[in-house]
Each structure stands twice: as C-alpha cells, then as structure tokens.
Computed example of a mutant assay.
Amino acid sequence: MKKEDALASYLINLGEEVFRLLLAKGAKKEDAEDIIQNTFYKVYLLLDDLTERNLRPWFFRVSLNEYIDLKRKKEQQNIYLSEEIYSKLQQIDCDMNTILNNDEIFYLLKDVKTEYKEIFFLKYYYDFSYEEIATILDIQIDSVKQKLYRARKSIHSKIGGKR
C-alpha cells in the first residue's frame, strides 16, 4: 500500500471517529459533516507541519473547537421561544446519553459531569493517552488524571463498590 493511500485511509477513519463523537456531543448530522470537511481542509493546508504523533489529537481538537464555535454562534442568535416550545426542543435534542444508553458503562456514566464523561470516553473509548487528552481539551495532564479518577469513582459508587 502506498504511503498516500495509507494516509488517506487513516484520515477517513479518523474523520468517521470524530464524526461519531460530534454526533454524541449533540451536533446535527449536517453540522458534523461540515466540521469534518473543514477539518480535512485544514489538514490539507497544514499537512507538512503535522506529524504522525500529533495528527490525531490535533484533528480532534480542531473539530471540537469548531463545534464549540458553532454552538456559541447558534446560542448568540436572538430567537425568543415560549417556555413550552423551549422545553419540547430540549427533550428532542439528541445528546450523548440518549445515543449511548444501550451499553452498561454509558448508563453508569449518564449522571456523571459532562467534563468527566468526555475524558472517560477519550481515554477508554478512543484510547488517547493522558497527554493527548490534555492537548485535545487544552487542560493540564494532572487535571485529566483527576477528572478521570472522579469519573471512575462515580462509576464505582454506582455499582456498589463491587469489582
């Protein structure tokens, strides 16, 4: 397999992985597709500056930042809704718990703070190192370890301390 083919295959798999994460975070399918496409474009522009080691965390970070920017932009639109309509929209909104509640671990994480849940998924579902998670979330490595510990502790308490 050519080096270019291997890179293309890797990027496609990475894009699909980040796409699923964006959907799990509540992004609309179309928004997630746009974010992934924009991130691919940025990869193309910066390909010479990216290394094998930093490509994956960089791709996640850029995609998540773009999603956050999109959410902020949508929140800043001045649309006034009645409380009744707003509450119905909140119930329809698809979030991580709704998508992933079929698996026991996701059920155990449903009441865990979002920041702990994200770190838990990045570590155990996406298999990132502490350093990569710190880079993706732009926080200290010690914070990653602390939040991951708290997520595990929360799960442990829900199962009654049994291993």
Rank of each mutant, 00 (worst) to 15 (best):
K162R: 12
D138C: 14
I141E: 12
I136N: 05
R152I: 02
S154W: 05
D34F: 04
Y86N: 00
Q140A: 15
L14D: 09
I12R: 08
I133A: 02
I119F: 14
K145S: 07
G15R: 03
R20W: 01
L55S: 07
K73W: 01
E132I: 07
F60D: 10
R150E: 11
G15L: 04
K110M: 12
N65K: 14
N97K: 14
Q77E: 13
E66M: 13
L22Q: 04
L64F: 06
L23A: 04
L108W: 06
D49I: 07
K147Y: 15
F121H: 02
D95G: 02
M1L: 12
D111Q: 10
Y80Q: 11
H156M: 15
K25V: 01
Y116A: 13
K110Y: 09
Y86Q: 01
F40C: 05
A6D: 10
F121K: 01
L70N: 06
Y10D: 10
F121Y: 13
D142V: 13
Y107W: 00
Y67I: 01
D142A: 14
K2E: 13
L122R: 06
L11N: 01
Y41V: 12
E83K: 02
L11R: 04
C94T: 03
Q76K: 15
K71P: 05
T39H: 07
T98G: 15
K88P: 02
G15E: 06
E131W: 06
L70S: 07
I92A: 14
K147I: 02
K42W: 05
D48M: 06
L23T: 09
I36W: 03
D31G: 09
F19I: 04
Q37I: 08
T114W: 00
A27C: 10
I155Q: 04
E33A: 11
C94K: 14
R152Y: 00
N78G: 10
D31Y: 07
D48G: 05
S63P: 09
A8W: 01
D142E: 06
Y80K: 15
F106E: 13
G161L: 02
S154T: 12
S87R: 04
I159A: 06
L11I: 00
K28A: 15
A24I: 08
F59R: 04
P57S: 08
I36H: 06
G160A: 00
Y107G: 14
D142R: 14
F121D: 04
I141L: 01
A134G: 10
G26S: 03
A32C: 07
D138G: 11
E4P: 00
Y41N: 08
N38W: 05
F120K: 07
I79A: 05
K25N: 14
Y41S: 04
E83D: 12
E83R: 12
T98S: 14
L46C: 10
I92D: 07
E131I: 13
G26E: 07
S157E: 13
M96C: 13
E84A: 06
R20Y: 01
K3D: 12
G160Y: 02
M1S: 13
